[in-house]
């Protein structure tokens, strides 16, 4: 058989394509469930880590419902969309959607981007967890960042990547890089400033963290990711702040009413007293 004849070449190529396709898709189908459960557990593990709960992957399934109380999905106005769970939102698709709500050229389902939000309770305190996704140097980067109830101070952050350079950009998934986010704030005098991964060092700035030497592009990717994702939640932050202000205002009102009632009671009792005098 002449190995170099055209007909043989085509035949060989065709058979090779079929064999490879069968091997790869067969493997993919057989292993899909095992892989998916690993990925799911890892996601739960990361969400838990983002509020400081460190468990190994097997325990994640058990601890997850203990700490994570709500899995909300918001729209661009910060309103809760019913019947959707944050866990099912595929962020890699959501980040590609523009949120130009009035652009009629984009079909309606694609105009509204879904914003997942997890609410957890750790040691009696409420924490808000926002999932992140962005671009590193060689591929996607992602993570979770959690905030205290003031929706301003960072409680903890977790990052991960697919293909960043080991020792450089890949350092974003080490606790060394992640721990310094705790205590940083994203608002400066009411204005949203996000958090900067600063090349050369943060110098103690409350809105900056140290960048990674040699991993500038990945560090910039983290900065952009934080900025881009967090600003989508600003309408929700505003709504939460309104609620808080309204609650505070209600408290003030009730307190003042109570004081007025007390004063009235005092003056009535004093009238009584004066008459006796």
């Amino acid at each position: 058989m002449d190995v170099n004849k055209n007909s043989y070449t085509f035949g060989f190529a065709a058979i090779m394509v079929i064999v490879v396709a069968v091997i790869l898709s067969g493997t993919s189908i057989i292993l899909k469930d095992a892989q998916y459960s690993n990925v799911e557990l890892e996601k739960k593990q990361n969400i838990l880590r983002s509020v400081g709960v460190n468990v190994n992957r097997d325990q994640a399934a058990i601890e997850y419902p203990v700490y994570i109380k709500e899995e909300l999905v918001l729209n661009h106005l910060g309103e809760i969309i019913n019947n959707l769970s944050a866990f099912d939102v595929d962020l890699s698709k959501e980040v590609k959607k523009s949120i130009v709500e009035d652009d009629e050229n984009i079909p309606l389902e694609e105009r509204t981007s879904l914003l997942p939000l997890y609410i957890s309770e750790v040691e009696g305190e409420t924490k808000y967890i926002i999932p992140l996704r962005g671009k590193g140097l060689w591929g996607p980067i992602w993570g979770f960042i959690s905030f205290n109830a003031d929706l301003n101070t960072v409680f903890a952050a977790v990052f991960d990547h697919k293909a960043e350079t080991p020792g450089l950009g890949a350092e974003i998934n080490t606790s060394l890089f992640q721990n310094v986010f705790q205590g940083k704030t994203i608002f400066e005098k009411g204005e949203f400033v996000s958090i900067f991964v600063q090349k050369g060092g943060s110098n103690g700035d409350i809105h900056k963290v140290d960048g990674i030497s040699g991993g500038t592009i990945t560090s910039d990717g983290v900065t952009d990711m934080l900025n881009e994702r967090l600003k989508r939640y600003l309408p929700y932050f505003r709504l939460m702040e309104d609620n808080r202000e309204k609650n505070q205002e209600e408290e003030i009102r009730l307190t003042i009413e109570a004081v007025n009632i007390d004063e009235k009671r005092d003056s009535i009792s004093n009238i009584g007293k004066r008459e006796i005098d």
Partner: peptide
């Protein structure tokens, strides 16, 4: 765009 929306709200 999102920053504009935030400023509006």
């Amino acid at each position: 765009n999102s920053l504009e929306l935030y400023e509006d709200s």
